[in-house]
């Protein structure tokens, strides 16, 4: 029979845990609202830009080589993967799902892979699995600005333009809903051409000229895609954390109920036993 005092101590400890997880849930919930709003608002721009770039790549076709370094297609000798994961844990299965997706993707590649790790959890995983880590970016915070993401974008642009990497992918948690975040692998460079009807191909007019338009559009495309991937990742992280902390709080409360029930049972049994002792003693005296 467990001791009442032990149970009571246990209840108190679980109560404290529940308080902590409840606070974390509330913090995550407020951050989640803000980050969800930001990522949903930014999504049309990121998607439209990808569409426009797809048209562009289709128009340019195989002649892209001379037009702009970021449109050059090469034989794939090295692949760069930007792996975006949170800085912190306590967000349910998000981190392990992301890392598993990235790990599997890397194993599936025929060419050697360099990793750009964004977030401490991404870095830890890549270092632990002994990947070739090209660069690490951590502590971008919960509300990164476009400026904060530029150092990543510029590294990637430079790596692709200089021929260090021949393909670039981004892995991040795509926000589907508050309860669903899906690891998402997006090919960033070279730009995948869209499938256009043949009547639409050719005769694209550029103003002022091809070089200028592409020169400003392509870097901007990479910057915005990476920035948006960050927003998605943060929205996913906060959502996953909020849900994880809510589940933790619920489990703690359930545990408190069970323990309270057990404690009452134990106490009642003790009282019954004591009563029996007293009654038994009185009867013995009378008899």
């Amino acid at each position: 029979m467990p001791n009442i005092r032990v149970i009571r101590r246990r209840i108190r400890s679980v109560q404290n845990t529940a308080k902590v997880t409840r606070a974390m849930e509330m913090i995550a919930a407020s951050k989640m609202r803000r980050s969800q709003q930001r990522l949903l608002a930014g999504r049309p721009y990121a998607e439209m830009m990808r569409e426009v770039l797809g048209h562009l790549a289709a128009q340019i076709g195989d002649t892209g080589d001379e037009v702009h370094p970021l449109l050059r297609r090469r034989e794939v000798k090295r692949i760069e993967v930007i792996h975006i994961a949170p800085d912190r844990g306590l967000c349910g299965g998000l981190n392990s799902n992301l890392n598993r997706a990235a790990g599997r993707f890397i194993l599936d590649q025929g060419a050697p892979v360099s990793v750009v790790a964004v977030g401490k959890k991404a870095r830890d995983f890549m270092v632990r699995s002994a990947r070739d880590v090209r660069a690490v970016f951590t502590d971008l915070g919960d509300r990164p600005s476009l400026m904060d993401s530029l150092s990543i974008s510029h590294l990637v642009i430079q790596d692709y333009a200089s021929g260090y990497a021949d393909e670039v992918y981004v892995v991040y948690g795509r926000f589907v809903s508050t309860v669903i975040q899906r690891p998402f692998i997006q090919k960033l460079l070279p730009v995948e051409p869209a499938h256009l009807e043949s009547s639409l191909v050719g005769g694209y007019i550029y103003e002022p000229n091809t070089t200028e338009v592409l020169g400003s559009l392509l870097p901007r495309f990479v910057e915005m895609q990476i920035y948006h991937a960050l927003l998605e990742a943060i929205g996913s992280e906060q959502s996953a954390r909020m849900v994880a902390m809510r589940n933790a709080t619920d489990s703690a409360n359930e545990m408190i109920q069970d323990l309270t029930l057990l404690m009452n049972k134990v106490r009642q049994e003790a009282i019954t036993k004591e009563l029996l002792d007293i009654v038994g003693g009185a009867m013995a005296l009378e008899g």
Binding site: V52, H55, L56, Q59, L200, G203, Y204, I205, Y206, E207, P208, E212, V213, S216, L217
Partner: peptide, 17 residues
């Protein structure tokens, strides 16, 4: 960038800053 441009339906494919 080259000046104001007006676009009517069925304009040719165009890309400009």
């Amino acid at each position: 960038i080259e000046g104001e441009l007006g676009i009517l339906p069925h304009h040719a494919p165009l890309m400009t800053t």
